[in-house]
Write a protein that binds this DNA or RNA. Structure first.
Length: 449
RNA sequence: GCCCCCAUGGUGUAGCGGUUAGCACGCUGGCCUUUCACGCCUGAAGCAGGAGUUCGAUUCUCCUUGGGGGUACCA
């Protein structure tokens, strides 16, 4: 099995594109595991030099590397195949399978108005202009692993333009030629290419070659049912990475978006995905990208990481160091890297100052009374260990004859400035005796507004 | 307009003629608990509609409706 992933080099790796890359990857690696020789090629699909900039290609490569999707060959620039494309075009022209015409899109429409909308445009050789392929009579059948056979009647197809007037090839000619030259056996790509496949089939036929096996993946939609785009939030892999998701969670989520196994496992490692993935079981209908489920899955993966591992990744993501203690007490409370700082930032930057409601409720007269008592017993502790802090604070409610919540929440707000935080014994211990007392003193001094 | 594809709860899916229609996210309620989470236990919620075929349709066929894609001298 020889497959390829051929993204358009726009810089961003669209989530749908990433899934296509993943499915190619899983199909190839899965086949390899079963003993079938397999190659996975990356080709940058664009006949336009302007767009295939090094920077754009670099960005796609980065995103793919982050996901852990690797290639046996590539990236190969489709643009570099231009001489070959021109050669094929000239050959087709010489053999009378293609012709030159100055007819424009408008002319084609006029032709349809005259001959009926369900009749395809048929032109004659003018010796100049763009190059179109002659569409023969009959029908074209696309054999697809996911959707079975789809038949297209040739009469509906306009003679497709395969090269510009300057002789440079267009997409439909270029992909077919490149896939053929590369010996691609399975073309796995988005469903948006299905309708164009007959044109490519024509190219294969003109070249006297057998077409590859196709597998057209359903498209990805946003929450509103429309094609996934930036306005739905994250639309690219880069955005997902920046939003603090783990690549392994993204891979797991994407694999399950459009493919399901008869056993209902949800958490699947790369290994398991490679073993189980089956193109025949990919769904035919479009799927909506649901960030809530990704979040949940990400939390699962994040919590399964060792504290050291998570600390390392978090330090890389935030650019801060010395996070281990905070990570340890926050791990089970966060779902993405982005959840970390809002929750644990107070340990480094001091109590949050924007939660007036919390202060009003917990640093009022009752709160300050509890804090004064807490300060006294905490000040006497030596060592200032987790056990000692917990013991000291736990006996306070009974002593003061108040609800436990009064003590704990007041201390929490004193330390964190807000009512949501990691465990307060752990937080206080991490802050240390001096800092803890300092913050309590400051809180007692804050007049309730 | 024309061509093509698709259709199981809000979302992702399992199902491949006979099931109490399963699982997961999300959502209810509850337990746990110093907050928030995590974890555990519950509950609500689905085969788009209509004709067939069949003893029997979520499953097969057709139509309708709905959604999506294509229709470039873009990819």
């Amino acid at each position: 099995m020889r497959v390829r992933f051929a993204p358009s080099p726009t810089g961003a790796l669209h989530i749908g594109g990433a899934r296509a890359a993943l499915y190619n990857h899983l199909a190839a690696r899965g086949a390899a595991k079963k003993g079938e020789p397999s190659q996975f090629i990356l080709r940058i699909e664009d006949t336009d030099r302007e767009r295939s900039t090094d920077e754009n290609v670099e960005q796609i490569l980065d995103a793919l590397a982050w996901l852990g999707i690797d290639f046996d060959e590539g990236p190969i620039s489709q643009v570099s195949h231009e001489p070959r494309h021109r050669e094929v075009v000239q050959d087709l022209l010489a053999r009378g399978l293609a012709y030159r015409t100055t007819a424009t899109g408008e002319d084609v429409r006029a032709y349809k108005d005259e001959h009926g909308a369900d009749k395809g445009y048929r032109g004659t050789d003018e010796g100049e202009g763009a190059i179109r392929l002659h569409v023969p009579e009959g029908e074209l059948v696309v054999h697809d692993l996911i959707r079975g056979d789809t038949t297209f009647q040739n009469v509906h197809m306009d003679d497709p333009v395969i090269a510009r007037a300057d002789g440079s090839a267009l997409y439909n000619l270029a992909v077919a030629v490149d896939d053929l030259d590369a010996g691609i056996t399975h073309v796995i790509r988005g469903e948006d290419h299905l309708s164009n496949t007959p044109k490519q089939l024509l190219v294969y036929a003109a070249l006297g070659a057998e077409p590859p096996i196709f597998a057209h993946l359903p498209l990805l939609h946003g929450p509103d049912g429309k094609k996934l785009s930036k306005r739905h939030g994250a639309a690219s892999v880069q955005e997902l990475r920046d939003a603090g998701y783990l690549p392994e969670a993204v891979i797991n989520y994407l694999a399950l978006l459009g493919w399901g196994d008869s056993d209902d496992e949800t958490i699947l490692s790369r290994e398991e995905l490679e073993d189980r993935f089956d193109l025949n079981k990919v769904t035919k209908h479009p799927a909506q990208f649901d960030e809530k489920k990704l979040r949940w899955l990400n939390g699962k993966y994040l919590r399964a990481l060792s504290v050291d591992e998570l600390t390392e990744r978090l330090e890389q993501h935030t650019g801060r160091t010395g996070l281990r203690g905070a990570v340890e007490i926050s791990q089970e409370k966060i779902s993405t890297f982005h959840d970390f700082w809002p929750l644990a930032g107070f340990l480094f930057d001091g109590p949050k100052e924007d939660d007036a409601k919390a202060r009003d409720q917990w640093l009022n007269e009752d709160g300050r009374k509890a804090l004064a008592a807490a300060r006294e017993s905490l000040a006497a502790l030596d060592p200032f260990s987790l056990e000692a802090v917990e013991g000291a604070l736990r006996e306070l409610p009974a002593t003061l004859e108040v609800k436990p919540k009064q003590v704990f929440q007041s201390v929490r707000v004193a330390l964190a400035g807000t009512t949501v935080s990691p465990g307060i014994f752990e937080s206080a211990t991490l802050l240390g005796k001096d800092e803890t007392l300092k913050r309590i003193d400051a809180a007692i001094g804050v007049p309730s507004t």
